[in-house]
Amino acid sequence: MQEIPKPSKKQPCHPLDDLIRTDRIPHIWCPGCGIGTVFSSCLAALKGSGINLGKTVMVSGIGCSGRAAGYVKLDSFHTTHGRAIPFATGLKLANPELNIVVFSGDGDLFAIGGNHFIHAARRNMDMTVICVNNLNYGMTGGQVAATTPYLAKSTTTPVGNPETPFNLPLMAYACGATYVARWTMLHTRDLTDSITEAIGKKGFSFIEALSPCPVNYGRRNKQKPLDMLKVYQKKAIIKNDADPSTLDIDFEKGIILGKFVDVDRPTFIEHYDKIYRPSRLQENVPGLNS
C-alpha cells in the first residue's frame, strides 16, 4: 500500500472552474456516475452560448441530479422534490430577464414533478429543462422509476419491473415543448451543442440525457460502469427529426438519439404581455421581445 499523497498546493485550473463552486468539489456523485458529465456538458454549453451568466439561474429538484444546483457558481436553487419547474416558473415570471435552466433527474421531473413538466411545456414557459435519466432513483438507493425499463431490477422491483417506462421525448412533444432532444452522456459534444441551442432558444426546451448509475442501477442489472457506456456506443442510432412516438428506449433494438422537435411558438410571457400588459411590449422590456 502506497502512502497517500498530500494534496498538491497549486493545481492547474480546469477550464470550467470559473463556473463551479470549487470549494464544494469533489461532488457527491459516485464513481462512474454520468451526472457529472451531463453537468459538465451543461456548464460548457452555458459558457459557450454567450448568454449573460449573471442573469442565468439553475434550478434543481431533489435527488442525485438535483445536487447540480449546489455546484454551479451561478444563482442556483435546490428546491423540493419535483418542484424545480414551478419554482423556476415563479422566478421567470418575476424577472423575465433571467435565463432559466432546470437541471434535475427523471424521478424528480417525471414522477413526483410530472404534472409541473406537462403544464410548463403546455404554457411554453421560457426555460431549458435538462433531465438526467439514469433509469432509477439513485439517491435513495435504486428504486424503480417511471423510466426504469420493463423487467429491470431495482430494490422495489426485486424480481423485475412490471411497469412500462415513459417515452420522455414523446411526452415533451405531446405537451407542447418547442425543443426536444435526447443524447447520452457519451455523446457529450452533441449533448453540449443541443443544450447550447436550447439555451439560446426561447420557449420550453427539453433535453433528455441518458446517464449510467453504476452503483444502484448497474449493480442490480449486471452492468459494470463501462458496460452502460458501451451500450450507448453500440446501440445509439442518431436520427434527427425521428417521429417522437418511435422513441421508446429499447436497449436491444437501439436507442434513438437526436433532435426531434425544434419549432417556434409564443411563450407564456409573450401571450400574457399581449393580453394583460400591453404597456410592457411598448416599453421593450429586455428578455421579452428578444
Binding site: A88, T89, G90
Partner: peptide
C-alpha cells in the same frame, strides 16, 4: 413553489 420562486426573483 412559484410564489417562492417569484420572491427570489
Amino acid at each position: 413553489a412559484a410564489v417562492l420562486g417569484a420572491s427570489w426573483g
